[in-house]
Simulated assay, not measured.
Amino acid sequence: MDDPKPKYNRILLKLSGEALMGPRDYGVDPDTVRGIAVQIKQVHEMGVQVAVVVGGGNIFRGVSVAAAGMVRATADYMGMLATVMNSLSLQDALEKQELPARVMSAFDMRQVAETYTRPRAMHHLKSGRIVIFGAGTGNPFFTTDTAAALRSVEIGADIIMKATKVDGIYTADPVTDSTARQIRHTTHMNVLEKQLKVMDATAISLCMDNKMPILVFNLTEPGNIIKAVLGEEIGTLVEDQC
């Protein structure tokens, strides 16, 4: 029997900082990161080019700290540094799987990461390396979701795969509302109009303008990254037409 063929040639995987915590209350759980790295390796072995954007909420969440009194811009810069820490953790896990990986930072910190340029990122992807984008967009007041949308368009990704702790988008919070139902397919405009909790409005608008599909799926289910790449019907797909 022939091996299954991936549906996508180049993906951008968006991981929240919380996704790296596993069962912990904060920080990085090595077993969880190792499991993510193993799945990325399997996808990479299918010939898929993989870029990753990692959040920093497991270490530092800027918005909540800003609300407590810190200057928002300062809090956001601290959050960007947290994303670089997470990126280095993922890079280490990938390299232990014998996968070449590069961390590219949105601002200059050459001792720990390459400074992001689109040509260099494209070179790494085409050379078979995993590229991990750290430090968000490099600007305060923008989330890592917006960074994922921006980088996905820049590198010409086929799709953004947003890995979360829930199995897609719901009409309401399924934890607090027993009537909430899962949405399998929707459009960017519908997400904006109904204020569905997928990504912030800036990220969704950028994806809509550039016809970038978004798949929201459950990372905690083993093998879901592979299923997503193969085009199996999991999670919720947000696309220009549905």
Rank of each mutant, 00 (worst) to 15 (best):
I132D: 12
R110G: 14
K227W: 00
Q111R: 12
S87C: 12
R72N: 09
L215D: 08
N58K: 08
A180D: 00
D240N: 09
T83E: 11
N210L: 09
L12V: 14
L237I: 15
T171N: 03
H123Q: 13
T137W: 10
A148P: 13
V71R: 14
L81E: 14
K165R: 11
P222W: 08
S205W: 02
V33S: 09
M109R: 07
T179P: 00
R10H: 09
S127W: 11
K197G: 01
V53M: 03
E154I: 10
N224H: 10
K5Q: 15
L192V: 03
V131T: 13
G22Y: 08
M122H: 06
M189A: 13
A163V: 01
M208T: 00
R151I: 04
E193H: 04
I159V: 15
P213S: 02
P23K: 07
E193R: 03
V216S: 01
D145I: 06
A19Q: 03
K211D: 15
I183M: 05
D200E: 07
T164G: 00
L192W: 00
A121Y: 05
T176L: 07
L13T: 04
K162E: 00
G138K: 06
L94H: 06
S89C: 14
C207D: 03
V65M: 12
S205A: 09
Y8V: 09
A68R: 15
T236G: 05
A82Y: 02
I40T: 04
H188T: 04
M109H: 08
M212A: 07
T83G: 11
Q195T: 03
A201H: 07
Y8T: 12
Y170L: 03
G231M: 04
K165L: 00
L81P: 10
A66Q: 10
V103F: 01
G17I: 01
A73T: 15
G79E: 13
A147F: 07
I225V: 07
V153C: 09
P140S: 09
L94S: 08
S64N: 10
A149I: 06
E221Y: 05
L12K: 06
M104Q: 15
A135R: 12
L81R: 08
A147T: 10
V38M: 03
G231C: 08
V28M: 09
S87W: 00
